[in-house]
Design a protein around this nucleic acid. Sequence first.
DNA 1: AGAAGAATTAAACAAATGATTAAATATAAT
DNA 2: ATTATATTTAATCATTTGTTTAATTCTTCT
Lengths: 209, 209
Amino acid sequence: MKTEDNKPVNDFTTEEKIKNAARAIFHKKGFAAARTRDIAEEAGINLALLNYYFRSKEKLFNIVMLETFQSFFASVSQVFNDPDTTFEEKLERFTSGYIDLIFSEPEIPIFILSEIRNNPEGLIEKIDIKWAVFQSVFAQQYKILVQEGKIKQQNFIHVMMNLMGLIVFPFVASPLLKAISGLTNEQFNAVIKERKTLIPVWIKAILAS
Amino acid sequence: MKTEDNKPVNDFTTEEKIKNAARAIFHKKGFAAARTRDIAEEAGINLALLNYYFRSKEKLFNIVMLETFQSFFASVSQVFNDPDTTFEEKLERFTSGYIDLIFSEPEIPIFILSEIRNNPEGLIEKIDIKWAVFQSVFAQQYKILVQEGKIKQQNFIHVMMNLMGLIVFPFVASPLLKAISGLTNEQFNAVIKERKTLIPVWIKAILAS
DNA sequence: AGAAGAATTAAACAAATGATTAAATATAAT
DNA sequence: ATTATATTTAATCATTTGTTTAATTCTTCT
């Protein structure tokens, strides 16, 4: 039973099942360690269908990678280019929203960071991420605050490094941090949730220093 | 021409050549994407010698991983447990020293972080990293400063997350950061060098906030 | 010099893995 | 209903890749 656009009711199409499985496996293991048979099994489909729908492992990976990358940075652009919020509000919304986002899929940061080292120019150029960040309203508001003497002059890239470092690092280093701290998963998650309100405060303290 | 302990003069033993090559390849590509033939070629040796000296790719990897891990955290322990420096001095020495260390081998952080996700319990337990950090003199000095009311009460793990996040993140995200900022490699490196003095200032601002 | 052991090499093996084929089944169109 | 097209399957292919083997060369010891 399918609709006129070939989509099963109450279920996923074969193509979607493959892509969802591929996303899960690639995110968890990376391109090189992921096997097409893993993906086929996870999707519950015959191995040959993977090539029938996507031609090759690499083509499938590129699609998953691009979509992951895009959706992961879509919210950046949205928050950073909202004309109706202040610099400080953007700081708070970005921090809180991003921590929630990564919480829902904690493997994504390390996936992106580790896969991007193999991707010389291919991927990054496909998304206008530069515009989303360095030409954003957020960046312009920063510049104005500097001109007004409200915050200290400093290369804007430091702000981005600091903000993203404070948000993302605990996730990518979580196995290590759990080991050295001895915290349980629940305790660790509670610590990270605290950061949703702490990081904006810290960033402001940094900007004032 | 070799010395009595079988070490060639002015050169590396075969075993060392293999391990050095393995380190380079594993650091750059990770375990799954590294091929034993890559390593043999990089080392300039016959492929069979890899198994002759190290039994298997996995055993070779475990040796490289453990050594990398140990050497990368040895300096932490040293700086953090120096009884003759203040909390503030440790902050400065750790930041400066670690940025220099990562500069010399920029692939190591992403290597460690991405490989550790496959290593449930094996690796981390082999190093007493908990002692090196959470039971360190640095941690004790932090506790005292909190008791004295010199800095604000906060879970010590936040300090470690912040410090390491500010230091490490720019390296693991460098391809992304270069893309969004448009900086050249030289400009990017200059920015990171600025952070050697900035990060301790920022951490102190955070601790006071 | 000659024997014994260590190191090295070329070749091949075996398993894993990405991809393809050809037949079978299901779906859509007339 | 029949045909045509799309989807799915089991089997197989072809390459890659970790590993081993057996022969050869080098080193060491007497």
